[in-house]
Nucleic acid binder design. Sequence first.
RNA 1: AGGCGGAUAGCUCAGUCGGGAGAGCGCUGCCCUUACAAGGCAGAGGUCACAGGUUCAAUCCCUGUUCCGCCUACCA
Length: 944
Amino acid sequence: MLRCLLNRAAARLMSERQLDKTYDPKQVEERWYQVWIDRGYFRASVTHPGRPYCIVIPPPNVTGSLHVGHALNNSLQDILIRWRRMQGRNVLWMPGTDHAGIATQNVVERQLLAEGTSREALGRERFLQRVWEWKAKAGDTIIQQLKRLGASCDWDRLRFTMDEGLSKAVREVFVRLYEDGLIYRGERLINWCPRCLTALSDIEVEHEDIRGKMYYIRYPLADDPGTALTVATTRPETMLGDTAVAVHPEDPRYRHLIGKAVRLPLTTRDIPIVGDTILVDLEFGTGAVKITPAHDFNDFEASERHGLPRISLLTARAQMDDIGLQEAQADPSLNLALKSVHQARTIVVEALRERGFLTKVEDHKMAIGKCYRCKTVVEPFLSPQWFVKIKPLAEPAIKVVEDGRIRLIPEAWVNNYLGWMRDIKDWCISRQIWWGHQIPAWYCTSCNREHIVRSGRAVGTTAEGGRLPEITKWNYTLAQGAQPVVAKSVPTRCPDCGGQEFVQDPDVLDTWFSSGLWPFSTLGWPDETPELKTYYPTSTLVTGLDILFFWVARMIMMGLKFTGDVPFRDVYIHALVRDAEGQKMSKSKGNVIDPLHMMERYGTDALRFTLASMASPGRDIKLSEERIEGYRNFANKLWNAARFILMHLDGPREDISAAARSFPDRWILSRLNFAIRSVTQELEHYRFDRAASRLYHFIWHEYCDWYLEMVKPFLQHNDSVDARRTRHTLVETFETVQRLLHPFMPFITEEIWQTLPHEGESLVIQPYPEERPDWDSKDTEHAFGILEQCVTTTRTARALLNYPPGKPVAFFAWGSYEREGQILETLQGLVAHLGRGVVQVLPFDQWPSSNVLRLAAEGLTVGMVVEGDVDLQKALARISRQRAEGAAEVQRLEAKLKNVEFTSNAPPDVVAEHQGRLKVLQRDQAVLLSSEEQLCAIMRRRAP
RNA sequence: AGGCGGAUAGCUCAGUCGGGAGAGCGCUGCCCUUACAAGGCAGAGGUCACAGGUUCAAUCCCUGUUCCGCCUACCA
């Protein structure tokens, strides 16, 4: 015990001179990242040699904070980027942030609320100033966190979606689309968030199933109140806005009623009965459908088909609107004005019931839409909005994916993408918020006409409501505090009426409008910059599937339209990160794994490696802290391998020809080459998980568990030829390992690499390992297989029999001496070293020789077949025969064996069960095993 | 409602020629062997969801069923 402690103390003294015993990420990461930045390794230049390789970062919200989804997304990008950089490509990783319109505005509005004020109170200009201030303050956070993650972006090129350059691109795109007739303004039914007070596009609405109710309401015929049509609805409060009832023209129940009218309950209005094949499903409900054009998308379309009026019952805050109620001729005694939708429903249902119109209420499963930013229930809302006519843009975007000019990885998403694109609806791009790119549309105050210009400058404000063009009144009324700004300079003169004053549209563009331009706007478009020429189309896009439609689809459409080329070649789509239970991470559930906390605790490399190893295609990632801990241990393992190697490097190194290399050296080079080949292949196929797993297995199990163990005897005598050569291979292989692993674990590999003998100033710019066919050695790997079996067999037998660790074990092999036997003989030293204790290798065909028996008499004896074609039954028969014929010597020795018995007849079931497997039978039976097919011999320890 | 994905060890998951059932974590036993106890060695543990079919042979291919997840969606 004492000796052990002393040994450990001595070892610690020795090692502390070089590296600490455990890897401490903290003091390594910051230091190296600063060096990399200072030396400009991440800087891209169009003049760099090498084929361009470019990734544009999915820009995170400028005021956001790094969550685990970012960590995954950016770890994978950094792996690709570092790998390609080391391969000598001209690499650009373009970083940037997104202004994230609604999300950011909401954040600042919450701050204002806490201060007891509001954006309306501040007014548009001061509010925007406030957001810019917040952006200046918080905008750096996410960037610093990405740096912490090791992201090797070219930070000098950092862009923001509301930069002047990018804003210019946005206006240019808007104008060109307008000129091409692909942008239009119109009063349409859109999705409206009554909390954010803005329109949303279709995909910004999240659907959620709820248990609702279906209400059946009688609509009496106007000319025959005794007869009634019964309609079914889930939203009875909107019935006041009905402007027709539809039935199927082939429905025998109702077809004779088409053209007649019903008296709408709770109102004094008569509304027509129309025939409609699209809206009405004969099988569903009662077969009669109320048409409420201002509050339902289908009904809106039906109203277009039949030329029906639209009555909007709701205010922007989703309250019952006084004017709308009057228009609907609703019974004033109901007192619905300014009641919420929910209250209105109660009132209307109660009134219908009292007056005998409500015939039935039943449970009904239905879906409601919620705002993706604030989860408020959205309302279909009639309002003037800007739209992009999307079909002409979608068609080429479908084609490039069909053609394979853009590859989606995994391919499973192709169908999803195509299906969505083929069914795509016009894109509502106007938002009634303030934070974003204001729409470059100006209205003449005299004639109301709109003018779209590339640049417009406001020169004076007016509070005169009278000066507002009719066309913008709704928008300005809604945006209280947004003072109309009059422009006298641009456009200079209204071409239609000669008017000289203009008011800009107060709305801003959907955030995704500007991020849709990201791949080319960040490279300088619309100018023909060298960057654009060099790096566009970009190479790979790495993104989560949650923004496939929001962002990726728009980039493809915009890229094709404005550059005539695809924005990227490959789209790698990774999964969502969930918690260990598979739940979506959210702050409210409290199941968030904070990547910053993980980096702090386990090191950035461990986090990155975890995320990479879990990035299997087609499955969500269930992240757990234990997993990260496991890879922290992996980093530590690597670290200690480095310590071991450094500890043995004091001494000369000698390069030698391949032929003269030692067995362990030849073996590890062959395995290393295999690792290089597979890691590279897996990366080319975006199989980060497999690449990571190969690295893990190679480094831990092949390199550390076997190679470093095998090498120890070679290093015993410091100046020996063996030691000199081994040192050379140690450096050669371990340096290669650092390069191979660097894209995954950039920090620890740099730290280790710098302490190894090396050429060059940083691992970041070293070449990535390439295949070395001359390192391949099938023979060596075959021999290693035999060695491994011998060693494992010995250890297994020893463990199961509780055989003392230090006591010798005899080992004998069964096979042809010329082949495997000879191999084993040459590896005797290694078998002895790895198998612990004294091991003798004997050709098995001498068995039972006196040598073997002598060993057996002394202790545990292990034998195995090393050649595949031994017939078990025959072999066992031979053993019996030899014993029966009985060399006197054999019998004499056998008699001496107190506790070991040789069994010449393996039980048939044992043979059947264990044939071909390296396996020990039972606790009291030692042995023995096989190479490929055959069980070989069984020794039984007698019970004491 | 449609589409897609998944179901393999206690847990999380690999397994893309149709022939060997695997890894990590967890668990059990032994071991502080001079790189590493965040370690080493060994071990237990599976009807590859279910039912059919094709085949000499199926975790893998086909059909159907069940359960879970996701995406899309205008059934009032």
